[in-house]
Amino acid sequence: MTPAQTTRLDRPGLAPGLPLWRRLLLSEYLVLFLTVVYVAGMALIVPEILAADTWRDILAAMIPLLIVAIGQMFVLVVAGIDLSATSVLAFSSVLGAAVITMDGGPLVGMPAFLVVAVGILAFMAVGGAVGAFNGACTTRFNMPPFIVTLTTMMFFSGAAIWVTTLLTDDGSSIGSLPREFVFIGQGRVFELPFSLLIALAVGLLAHVALSHSLFGRWLFAIGINPNAAAVSGVPVRRTMFWAYVISGACAGLAAVIYTARLETGTPVLGQRILLDVVGAAVIGGVSLFGGKAKVLWVVFGALFLTVVDKGLQLLGLSLAGVFAIKGGVILLAAIVDAQRQRLKGRG
């Protein structure tokens, strides 16, 4: 075999000689391009989509979704899935808020920065613990990840509501959160939302972890071929376990932002974004079959979903209509992923 034959079109965005439309279709910027086209098309019907306020909304909706989706990506790389992420949002929102509430919470009277720090840790610890449970079940008992995380999803959604009824009189939400904590969700630094800074930090950290660290390399190796990884001395189970922990912790962090924004811990948090979380990652190009992921892709995916959502709302479509269309888009992304996988199998 000559070396010339070995250069392949696997990263076809770089492949010269293909027609422009095909290069675009196969490029990793396709989703970003589609977003632009969508916005341009929408602008003809609803010009509000170009307004600054609209984009502020989009950004606000996108940031926590992005953080959860980045966590999800770590699980998808090893060909797993975490459907419990939305219940983690709700559960850690309630438990976390209970820890930091000034209305008879355990931290009343402590210095503000300490309350905030402990609070964030508590949110993420709750998420990480659920993730650890998911990870232990899939790696130790070989339970299928989708069913494990489906049951933990149901369990912790229920637990969030139940705990709320135990902790509050009306059973709806836990308020009186410290002002410094609320700042995380609502505050601005240099005209930028503080939560955006958090998202940027998470994105950067995730990028470094995924693309530049030993852990990240191991994740990809497991996703591409777990057997080869095991024979090469990769601690497969341990690595997969941590992927689930990260997913849980990211959902916990997103719960911080949601909770701070709403100023209350509530068990109904994130009920509707289950599909968006998986969808953002898969639309961006993260494969459900493992071994393919990039933080930037997830950013594009989350942006696309949020923009589509906003555009449909501006069109005056009912919530149900938005759901139907978004579900369809996500299904389409999964189909494209499956077809790519099939082509790869042939190649």
Partner: peptide
Amino acid sequence: RLRVPAFIATLATLFVGRAIALYLSGV
């Protein structure tokens, strides 16, 4: 035919199906 993993395919149709029903019923 399209080889999408069953859990993800039916998760998506779950959302789409519910949404269509909600749309028909006007919630």
